[in-house]
Amino acid sequence: MNSANYLYVAALLFTIGSIGVVVRRNAIVVFMCIELMLNAANLAFVTFARINGNLDGQVMAFFTMVVAACEVVVGLAIIVTIYRSRRSASVDDASLLKR
């Protein structure tokens, strides 16, 4: 199977993720879209590792997973706290810096 196909999938996932971040208001969905983008990047890393025949990309993918895990913990905590105080998970409501 052609390795380039994996890259197409990765690009598709990244595009879906980024569009989701920009257009959706729900913080949970935005968060999931960010995860989607990270995983698209991971897929691209692993594919390049396969194409080049070394482990550099694999190592980077592990790094990304660690970072993503940390991010999920901190991010979900923030979202839950905001939801508790404001009864809203919309990112547009959290715009205190503007006003």
Binding site: S18, V21, V22, V23, D92, A94, S95, L96, L97, K98
Partner: peptide, 14 residues
């Protein structure tokens, strides 16, 4: 440019 909307910042980054 400082709209206070996270999504617009994300848009700019993109």
């Amino acid at each position: 440019t400082q709209t206070g909307f996270v999504r617009s910042y994300a848009m700019w980054i993109l």
